[in-house]
Design a protein around this nucleic acid. Structure first.
Length: 128
RNA sequence: ACAGGUAGGAGAGGCAAUCGCGGGGGAAUUUUCCCACGAGGAAAGUCCGGACUCCACAGAGCAGCGUGCCGGAUAACGUCCGGUGAGAGUAAUCUUAAAGAAAGUGUCACAGAAAAGAAAACCGCUUGGUAAGAUUGCAAGAUUAAGAGAUUGCAAGAUUACAAGUAAGGAUGAAAAGGCAGGGUAAGAGCCUACCAGCGGUUGAGUAAUCAGCCGGCUUGAUAAACCUCACGCGGAGCAAAACUAAAUAGGAAAGGGUUGAGGUUGCUCGCUGACCUUUCGGGUAAGUUGCUAGACUUGGGCGGCAACGUUCAAGCAAGAUAAAUGAUUGCCAUUAACAGAAUCCGGCUUAUUGACUGCCUGUCAAC
RNA sequence: GUGCUCGUAGUCCAACGGAUAAGACGUAAGCCUCCGGAGCUUGAAAUGUGGGUUCGACUCCCGCCGAGCACA
């Protein structure tokens, strides 16, 4: 249910450039979302963290936070587009709950959420 | 007890549950389940040294670069260990690119007399008596009534100029051609002597750097992290190395050069190799597999060595990704805790770093 | 992975091993003006950082920090 395997994540310069050039962007203090509406992508996602944020440890942490937020909520998102998440400085010191909240807010603004579904938290706790 | 020095290990989360990630193994058989494993002391900087791969299994000379007290360790090193000299500290201890300045060249600002040929005389000191000469003494003596006394000669002579000697003293400077004391001298000077420093020789100790003793002559600025000399070392490129498989209109086209030798082999000259190379135009790929982790390996013990380390025995297998794997939530216990993420692999160096801990040593104070 | 270059006032730049670190623009104060501008005068302001060599270091050497470039 909450798997996120390699085949669902963008690989290579080619895909990143394509989304970056054609996509629409939404941003808040924590992260930036780039979206391209294309059914071929089938809900693939990419994670990025620039060198400005810090060293390898910090960039890894930012990417992990974003991936966890995406993984736990991906069933309530639309699947007919490709997404790239770019980390911002807030995530360096943020806790997971704050990161997830920021992510969901941004998804609402980008109209990525499926209306009929329960909230992500409800799904999460029902599996426990 | 306080202060300091030094060596060292460990390096902040642990346990349980749930959801996930990476490659591996197994079961199942087409997408699931199970199992164990999964970042560091610096993984970093890329500052050195190797292994490995390809180019002659790696060649010669010059150039270039690096290292630089001595001995040892090591695969190797610019690393480490032990020792010597020099410097710092009351001491424990620490620091040290520490060969050669008598092969040659360069530089040494300002100041100062002089800054590198044993050179140089500004002040000072001494001698000469060459020149000038205030003044003093003695003698002669124009003029004069006398007092006075021009002038001349001889002697002494402050002082000035000149000549010569002198580097002990002053002044300048970071540095002034050994230091200090005595003798010596016209005044001075290694001119002579003792001690110290340095130089050369020699004897002894030590593998050696070096140390100690004796003798000798009598003294040589600093800088080589300036050029340089000497000794030693270094062939080049790097896992995007290298090999294989596949795909792409696809072993493309044009011009130029080429077995009378293209290109490669860091720069040049040789030597070696031996068929492609360069530019332009047009068009693409940038995918997979191997390399890829069992090794100068890890842990523990014995033996040798002051030590670095070597050797031997036993046990063990411990990441292998490729937009690149360690995270999230809850509970309990600790506690609010650093720097930080493998990318072919090892040995070092350097830098970043929380709160503590352990061993040994030194100094001061107190008590016995 | 490999190789190379560069760090000097707020900015752009100079500077043989000899210092009080030069210049331009900007900036501060004053003069001038009814006010401002222009002009004139006078200032302030720097060697990325820690060591070493040297009598003396922006300069030479070593270690860090930062910036940039090139190749595969």
């Amino acid at each position: 249910m909450f798997n996120l395997s390699k085949s669902e994540i963008f690989r290579g310069k080619h895909d990143f450039n394509a989304v970056h050039n054609r996509g629409r962007s939404f941003a808040n203090h924590a992260l930036v979302i780039l979206i391209v509406k294309d059914e071929r992508y089938n809900g693939k996602v990419g994670f990025a963290a620039g060198k400005k944020l810090g060293g390898a440890v910090i960039r890894n942490r930012v990417k992990r936070l974003m991936r966890e937020a995406y993984r736990l909520n991906k069933n309530s998102l639309r699947r007919d587009c490709g997404i790239i998440l770019v980390g911002r400085k807030f995530l360096v010191t943020a806790k997971f709950k704050d990161a997830q909240k920021a992510f969901l807010d941004l998804c609402k603004r980008a109209k990525l959420l499926l209306k009929s579904n329960q909230t992500a938290d409800a799904i999460y706790f029902s599996t426990l």
